[in-house]
């Protein structure tokens, strides 16, 4: 790791100011950032720890679930309110990494990072979430701009994420065998915004919507409706764990399982 200056501000405005410095980096749970720093893939001048900004917490209303950016995966997974409102979201959080990763990793960090193999982006896109920052509210549809890239500006801090409550939803994850991240993760939802299905882990451009499946499911919400519907292998990632063709096939299989799981 390169050395850096460490700050732990107590107010959002101070954090935003600190992040205005060249090569400043926000630190949430550190479950991605610290491994990256250890590999010396990133050389921040200042690391701004968001832990003291009061950004964690869960609010459930009649039609939405709002989660503070610094809320850990473990907290989301264990939340009785979320389990009631969007059980698929609690289950997704409970399936990220391992117990120790879930104890520290946060929803804000996951969405800011937008790892193409991460789980939360699938939920945000499929549920039509709104990502709120110190500056604005961003719709998921325009938030994810490609692998590891988002609509966030350098000094923009996610403060919370809001999910409309769907009628039914499920997330099914097929794990990359070594890293245990998603090799194919499908979040299927039927909600206020209609039927939406988001796929993570496999697309070259990061999380994407499986629109052909959405169309089929809109008229017939059942796994059988997805028979014969597939994604093209052209935009799939390929590596030692699976070819693009295999991943494209898995998207079809996991999509069906997600619909079945959603009931």
């Amino acid at each position: 790791m390169y050395n850096f200056e460490y700050q732990k501000p107590g107010a959002l405005a101070d954090a935003v100011k600190a992040l205005g410095a060249a090569d400043a980096k926000a630190l949430a749970g550190g479950m991605t950032l610290i491994p990256v720093l250890k590999q010396r893939l990133n050389q921040p001048s200042v690391v701004v720890d968001l832990a003291k900004l009061g950004l964690s917490g869960i609010t459930v209303t009649g039609d939405s679930v709002t989660i503070g950016a610094m809320t850990t995966h473990a907290t989301v997974a264990a939340s009785a309110d979320i389990k009631r409102a969007i059980p698929a979201l609690a289950a997704l959080a409970g399936g990220i990494g391992d117990i120790q990763v879930r104890a520290r990793g946060t929803i804000g960090g996951s969405l800011a990072n937008n790892d193409p193999a991460a789980c939360y982006p699938a939920a945000a896109l499929a549920l039509g979430a709104t990502i709120t920052t110190n500056k604005r509210a961003i719709k998921a549809d325009v938030y994810f701009t490609g692998m590891f890239t988002t609509a966030l500006a350098a000094d923009e801090v996610i403060t919370s994420v809001s999910f409309p409550i769907p009628a039914k939803a499920a997330y099914v994850k097929f794990k990359q065998p070594a890293s245990r991240y998603a090799m194919v993760g499908v979040f299927a939802a039927k909600g206020p915004a209609g039927v939406r299905m988001a796929v993570t882990g496999s697309g070259q451009g990061g999380v994407f919507r499986f629109t052909a499946a959405e169309a089929a499911l809109a008229s017939n919400w059942s796994a059988a409706a997805l028979n014969g519907i597939s994604v093209s292998a052209d935009n799939m990632m390929s590596d030692i764990h699976g070819s693009a063709v295999y991943r494209a096939h898995l998207v079809g299989v996991i999509a069906k399982r997600a619909v079945t799981a959603a009931g």
């Binding site: 460490y6 630190l27 550190g30 479950m31 610290i34 832990a51 120790q100 520290r104």
Partner: peptide
């Protein structure tokens, strides 16, 4: 690998993925 797991305020965490300052 989890060889580094310790408890912080009652939760198990990976001590290799945390700054001392955190």
């Amino acid at each position: 690998c989890g060889a580094c797991v310790v408890h912080i305020d009652g939760n198990s965490v990976k001590a290799c993925t945390m700054l001392a300052l955190q």
